[in-house]
C-alpha cells in the first residue's frame, strides 16, 4: 500500500492468538480487527460509539472497538465474537430467535457474555442495564433478553 511513512509494529493478542501488524497511529481496534486480521465478525454500524455493534472484550470488559485506538490495547487480551463461537450464549441466541438481520448480533452476544461472566443469573433489570448500549433496529430485544435469561439451558 503506497503510504509515505512506515507505521510502527504492533503486537496484538486476539482470541488467544498473538498477531503482529503495522498499524498507523489513529487506527481503531475495529479497523485492525476487520481490515488487517480479517476478523469481520465484529460489525461497525455507526463508527462513532453510539450503537454497540462493534463491541469486543478487552481484558474481559465490553469495549466499543470503533472508538478504541488499536495502540491503546497492545498489552491487553482482546476477545471477539470469533473467540466466542462455541459459547453457550451463541446457541441461546439461535434457540430463542434472538436475532433477525443479525448485523448487531455479534456485539449483542459479546455484551451478553460479559454480563453472564460477572452475573451468571442476571435479573431483567440487570440484563436491560448491561445491554442498554447495544442497539437492534429489528427489535429483537425481547428474545435477546430471553436468550440471556436462559443461556445455560
Amino acid at each position: 500500500m503506497p503510504t509515505s511513512r512506515r507505521s510502527p509494529l504492533l503486537r496484538l493478542e486476539v482470541n488467544d492468538h498473538v498477531y503482529e501488524l503495522h498499524a498507523e497511529v489513529g487506527t481503531t481496534l475495529a479497523e485492525a480487527l476487520r481490515d488487517d486480521l480479517a476478523l469481520t465478525g465484529t460489525k461497525v454500524a455507526c463508527a462513532e460509539g453510539h450503537c454497540g455493534s462493534c463491541t469486543v472484550l478487552v481484558d474481559g470488559v465490553p469495549t466499543l472497538s470503533c472508538i478504541t485506538l488499536v495502540h491503546s490495547v497492545a498489552d491487553a487480551k482482546v476477545t471477539t465474537i470469533e473467540g466466542l463461537r462455541d459459547h453457550q450464549m451463541v446457541h441461546a441466541f439461535v434457540r430463542e430467535d434472538a436475532l433477525q438481520c443479525g448485523f448487531c448480533t455479534p456485539g449483542q452476544i459479546v455484551s451478553a457474555v460479559a454480563l453472564v461472566g460477572a452475573t451468571p443469573k442476571p435479573s431483567t433489570d440487570e440484563i436491560r442495564h448491561a445491554m442498554a448500549g447495544n442497539l437492534c433496529r429489528c427489535g429483537a430485544y425481547p428474545k435477546i433478553e430471553e436468550a440471556i435469561r436462559t443461556w445455560q439451558d
Partner: peptide, 11 residues
C-alpha cells in the same frame, strides 16, 4: 429456529 442463525450469530 433460523436455518442461518448460527452463521449470523457467530459473525
Amino acid at each position: 429456529t433460523r436455518i442461518d442463525g448460527l452463521e449470523r450469530a457467530r459473525g
